[in-house]
Amino acid sequence: MRFKWQVRFSLAIAKKDARIYYLKGPVLIFGLFFPLCLFGAFVFGRKISPTLLMPGLLGMTLFFISSSATPVIAPWEALNKTLERLVSTPASVSAIIAGDILAGFAYGILVSLVPLGVGLFAFGLTLVRPAVLILTLILSAVCFAGLGTLFSTLPTTIPSNIMLLSNLVRLPLLFISGVFMPLERMPGWGKALSVISPLTYTCDLARHALLGRGYFSISRGLVTLFVFAVAFVFSSIQIHKKTMSKRLA
């Protein structure tokens, strides 16, 4: 019964987040426009087939959109003096953070349909493994939204500090995750580093789903993404429980 209430609270918070944060210019620019520009730079600059880059674009868009607003919601709400009232409602800290993750998840899935549609209809890609694609989108969106809330555990009320931290982590991940080239073409050190990035598995699984081939096995990719997702969500909620008081003190 109590769990059912908290799920309802999470849905209400997710709806609020979607209305307030996900239609803002910076979120759309970083989540959609930025990956499209990077995609364009690689397609036109290096004459790589757009078809080969589509899985990377899909992963990159999902990565940036799902983790775009989640890092700043908590500090933003503390700054705007709305967080204290939220915390004093019957919604638990877990429900509040789960709501933020849910909004990032839903928005990530929704916006990633744009590059997917472009790939399928403009570049003639075919969906080789639809089930793999669906599982990849779901697990990746949870994982990246969870990563976003993990950044926001830093108890500051200055959103730009969190954005700085999140971009310091997110941008380097782009270059070690096989976004712009398949993993098999990466140098040895790149391959070694790539295993620590969840984006690696998203892009690799997207290749399985759209191109019919990948570097890791599908099961390894899905299990690893699941482990990353659980780890990010769980640790984020636990740390938020500890730091929420500090943020409001």
Binding site: R2, W5, K16, I20, N80, K81, T82, E84, R85, S88, T89, P90, S92
Partner: peptide
């Protein structure tokens, strides 16, 4: 805490609506 919070309404110092 859940039962206690259900009993109370809170207007924090210098709070804002969304």
């Amino acid at each position: 805490p859940f039962e206690a919070k259900m009993q109370m309404g809170v207007v924090p110092e210098s709070a804002n609506p969304y």
